[in-house]
């Protein structure tokens, strides 16, 4: 769950757009196996949107964990079966496993969360007293914090790398827009995963 409303909406819109693109690409092109990959990614995006909102973060937790675990196995199978892009499929497997793990530990991480009001600071300038901010300060167990920190770094680096490829692709042939959009979508999903993992720290 993301405590900050603005950030919650940013995550929601980003994953909604990424999910919509995955569905669009699924309809437009790809082999049966890769259409399955797109559907899995679209459902992962829906799961991330649900996880961001307090009311939805606990919905169908066990089915979600099972589903994302199976999705991770699917991508792991693609790594084993495929000859090309094993690294990318391995990354997608890690993403699905990370998703299952986050659904699993989210209640644990949020159990100690409490709203924390920031101090008034030094309102020495007239009319400029600092606003009292409210944020969620989590008190996650150590093992959750360690894994979440590792996932944050991994997905931050991966998301940035996808974005770098998207930038390089974007300056190239304009007929490859779908491919560029796919790379951007991967970047958005990776960075969104990093953000969600960071919330658990």
């Amino acid at each position: 769950m993301i405590g900050e409303l603005g950030l919650r909406w940013i995550v929601t819109l980003a994953f909604a757009a990424a999910g919509a693109f995955c569905l669009y690409r699924c309809v437009r092109q790809g082999s049966a196996a890769h259409r399955v990959c797109d559907v899995l990614h679209a459902l992962m995006c829906a799961g991330m949107v649900a996880m961001a909102w307090p009311a939805a973060m606990d919905v169908a937790r066990v089915p979600q964990i099972v589903f994302f675990s199976v999705a991770a196995l699917w991508f792991a199978g693609m790594v084993v079966a495929g000859r090309k892009n094993r690294l990318a499929f391995g990354y997608h497997a890690l993403m699905m496993a990370g998703m299952a793990w986050m659904v699993l530990v989210m209640p644990l991480a949020m159990a100690g969360a409490m709203p924390a009001s920031s101090g008034a600071g030094s309102g020495d300038h007239a009319g400029m007293a600092m606003g009292g901010a409210t944020t969620m300060i989590g008190d996650s167990p150590a093992h959750v914090t360690i894994v979440a920190a590792a996932l944050t770094v991994v997905f931050l680096v991966a998301g940035t790398a996808w974005m770098a490829r998207a930038v390089d692709a974007g300056r190239g042939d304009s007929s490859l827009r779908l491919r560029t959009a796919g790379l951007v979508t991967n970047g958005v999903m990776g960075l969104g995963m990093a953000l969600m993992a960071a919330v658990l720290i």
């Binding site: 690409r25 092109q29 990318a88 692709a169 190239g172 491919r179």
Partner: peptide, 18 residues
């Protein structure tokens, strides 16, 4: 077209950046 093909980098179409 597979994801592998969709995500592969067609270097020939991308001008080398500075």
């Amino acid at each position: 077209m597979s994801i592998a093909e969709r995500e592969a980098s067609p270097a020939a179409t991308t001008p080398a950046p500075a």
